[in-house]
Design a protein around this nucleic acid. Sequence first.
RNA 1: GGAGGGAUGGGUGAGUGGUUGAAACCGGCGGUCUUGAAAACCGUUUCCCGCGAAAGUGGGACGGGGGUUCGAAUCCCUCUCCCUCCGCCA
Length: 425
Amino acid sequence: MLDLAFVRENLELVKQKMEERGFPALLADFESLDRERRRLLVEAESRKARRNKVSDEIARLKKEKQDASGLIAEMKQVAREIQELDEKAKASDEGLRELLANLPNLPHASVPVGKTSADNREARRWGEPRKFDFEPKAHWDLGPALGILDFERAAKIAGARFAVYRGLGARLERALSNFMLDVHTREHGYTEMLPPFMVNSAALYGTGQLPKFSGDLFKLEGHDLWLIPTAEVPVTNLYRDEVLEAERLPVKYCAWTACFRSEAGSYGKDTRGIIRQHQFQKVELVKFSLPEKSYEELESLTRDAETILQRLGLPYRVVELCTADLGFSSAKTYDLEVWLPSAGEYKEISSCSNCEGFQARRANLRFRRGKSGKTEFLHTLNGSGLAVGRTWLAIIENYQQADGSVTVPETLRPYLDGLERIQPA
RNA sequence: GGAGGGAUGGGUGAGUGGUUGAAACCGGCGGUCUUGAAAACCGUUUCCCGCGAAAGUGGGACGGGGGUUCGAAUCCCUCUCCCUCCGCCA
């Protein structure tokens, strides 16, 4: 959420930035709503001031055993007026809050202005896509042939967009998860967290999934509980309504969780394989930062995620998302895209964002400088480090051999009892 | 799932209709004393939203929401969370 006072004072700038993001009409009613809300507040509050004064007077009269019935009758009328004005003020306040809650974050000045993902800016590349002397297969062919991936039985027990990992397939998923967690906790200074995989709606509001994107989520019937679409939601909300000491910042957490996404509206997209699933596992990185340090932290978080791809020897590129491609809560995002031989292109495997104070205002995440300083909103960052399922398929495809077997990257062997190759069972 | 108890400021915890935004204690901050520190003593110490150029000023907040009343931390309803006991359970 943007700061109300900031929007009021910089309305034209905010309108322009929204236009750059592709949402030109969002602020049409802002001025009238804001003015109406303040007008009603002033009217209601002046009557409340009178009520407070007269109530004291009534108390005094009663104590002195004098008649107060005239004043009480007058106050009955005032109470009715207050109720009416309060209802109107509440309505316009809710209207304003709804408008603000549906407003995406402002892009950082360094974000390229663009209209589609084609306007994203490539920042750097790492590694060379391998030259195959045979026709590389897709993971949805390799996996079932190796007996490590089963789509048919997954469809039987759950439906489309689910997979069952079997034997070394399951083992590889676990090895990757452990490898990622080990690197981030041992080498990058993140503290491992294991949060709930379900959260309430307040948490989803805090990170910006609600109210706008409920359709992307799975909700539990009869409960105010939703399956998390990413560990960003539970972890970022850990300190909701708390005030942290500035010396504690940056706080760096990583968390392995399952993630659940409805993928409504993605029919016909990535239908084959495990690229787009209703459930996938991810190691997420979350940081709470001082505002003036958050862009440094974004760079280091992105490099922390890149480390995993480098250690696994997977070629990738880093893309700076343009204004039109930015997520709702993000002010700046780097996507990491891994090379997929079957697609012949780079495919998103991580998304690293600085949300600045956007989530902090929604979730009331604050910090204090020194002992007597005022509280300020901190900055939140998050990024995948990495999406485990997509890393799994990137390894299967990039390390495949002509005979359909898969070489295990050196780094991963200690996590698989020294296994060098995955072959048909 | 059943029965009961609870939620007050940074913390503990008083307060059961009218100067209670809130006692007291602890903590924090400032000061006195001291070579320094501790102790002791004195003072100070919540947040949000308006109006105002400012000084200042008004409103709101005692888990959330609603109600009763001229007036609610205090009475009623409802929701959430926590605790104890019983049942069930990995």
